[in-house]
């Protein structure tokens, strides 16, 4: 397994995929932090939300917005093997296919862990610096640390989920479109109209771990699952998708 993980690391570091998606995640996160600090949602212009320490925590949790990039990272890495037909030599080298999937999941979990740690730190520092220019509640590192565990866990699980989805839907374009439509259209819509259902979806399970709201202007963490339940739900999704990926991949004809 160590050999397989080493092979996976070589795969990742011999293309630019990781670099590009990490930079995209960083840019997206910084944009979100700027917007949260400097813009007020319509109707809430009179309230300075920055006075609320809970809101500052939500700003730091912007590191969690990298989730979609890590999801895509996993998807592209796995479905890319089908797209570039490297899957043939991969499965010739390791015919016990689930081992390849597990090695890839471990690899991207490690990468996601490192990346999310860096993003969390940058998010905290950026928030601290920006708040210094504003009239706001003080920035507290303790608050940032409260969401560190959730950020790391959430992003690691999303990267693993990405690998699983990339093995279930091997058409790269289809997998990415389905993941994006689900994340940015279906999930927000369901959450907006049926939060009782929506809170059980992976995106809101992640939000509960990150202790942010479901995204609506008046949403709050209290509408979502309790943190332990959120963790259990997200871990559950990951396990179900991973097992489904291993089973379908084992049966698939590689032509």
């Amino acid at each position: 397994m160590i050999a397989l993980i080493r092979s996976e690391f070589r795969k990742v570091f011999s293309t630019k995929l990781l670099l590009i998606l990490s930079l995209a995640a960083l840019g997206f996160m910084q944009l979100q932090i700027f917007l949260l600090v400097f813009l007020s949602p319509p109707g809430l212009e009179d309230i300075n939300r920055l006075m609320d320490p809970a809101f500052i925590k939500i700003i730091v949790a912007s590191a969690g917005s990298a989730s979609v990039f890590l999801l895509i990272l996993g998807i592209v890495a796995m479905s890319g093997e089908y797209r570039n037909q490297t899957i043939t030599s991969t499965f010739l080298t390791t015919p016990v296919r689930w081992r390849v999937i597990v090695a890839k999941m471990v690899t991207f979990a490690i990468l996601a862990l490192a990346l999310s740690l860096v993003l969390w730190l940058i998010a905290a520092i950026t928030t601290m610096l920006l708040l210094g220019t504003q009239d706001s509640a003080p920035f507290e590192w303790s608050a940032a640390f409260e969401i560190l565990g959730g950020t790391l866990l959430g992003l690691v699980l999303y990267a693993i989920l990405g690998v699983a989805i990339g093995s279930l839907i091997t058409s790269q374009v289809a997998a990415i479109i389905i993941a994006l439509v689900f994340t940015f259209v279906l999930e927000p819509l369901i959450s907006l109209f049926f939060l009782s259902v929506g809170k059980w979806l992976p995106g809101n399970a992640l939000n509960s771990i990150l202790q942010t709201g479901s995204g609506g202007p008046e949403s709050s963490a209290s509408d979502l699952l309790d943190i332990p339940v959120g963790v259990a739900v997200l871990v559950g999704y990951t396990i179900v998708f991973a097992v489904a990926a291993a089973v379908t991949t084992n049966k698939r004809d590689i032509t």
């Binding site: 080493r6 092979s7 070589r10 795969k11 011999s14 293309t15 570039n84 043939t88 032509t255």
Partner: peptide, 20 residues
């Protein structure tokens, strides 16, 4: 239809298989 990633060098393609 067994390919290599177009952005990878031949050496890296072989190295990733070798290490596995």
């Amino acid at each position: 239809a067994s390919g290599a990633h177009p952005a990878r060098t031949a050496r890296n393609h072989l190295r990733m298989i070798a290490s596995a």
